[in-house]
Amino acid sequence: MGRISRLTLNPAMLILALMLAVAGCANKQTPNTAADLGLGGGSATPGSPQDFTVNVGDRIFFDTDSSSIRADAQQTLTRQAQWLGQYPNYQITIEGHADERGTREYNLALGARRAAATRDFLVSRGVPANRMRTISYGKERPVAVCDDISCWSQNRRAVTVLQGAGS
């Protein structure tokens, strides 16, 4: 919920959040950033969490029952690594998530594997491992709640969450 409350501080971000929700249930596409949505993100202060979320993309998506980093996700993570290199004071929590099409305990493990794969990719792009912690939420924290693939594909995700500190 921390992210939502942060978003609502900024009217432009609220619109983005709504569009993500609407687009999520209407499309199989999974928009990563405001740029993907054609919104532009000019209003975010460089180096702010908003800048990271809007202009870099704070999340990547996975195929069903997979923790492989897809090509589109590699681009997002490469952008994340560059941004994190530019703003080195943020500590990072990587949340791994699964969709509801698996059983609870297995999905906790799957979310953990996705978080670890995401962390390892960021390490390979130069982000120090000691800046990052991982946590799995399994299928317990969906962002999209419809009962079809348009939502499941958004829920199979790893989210890079910036912790405190600031730039």
């Binding site: 923790s67 305990e105 493990a109 953990a112 594997r113 670890a116 390892d120 799995s136």
Partner: peptide
């Protein structure tokens, strides 16, 4: 995660996440 007791109640069996994600 995934804990259960042994039938005699003396042990708990569970999964532990490794650093490599398994």
């Amino acid at each position: 995660f995934a804990p259960r007791f042994s039938p005699d109640g003396q042990k708990v069996i569970f999964s532990l996440l490794r650093d490599d994600g398994n």
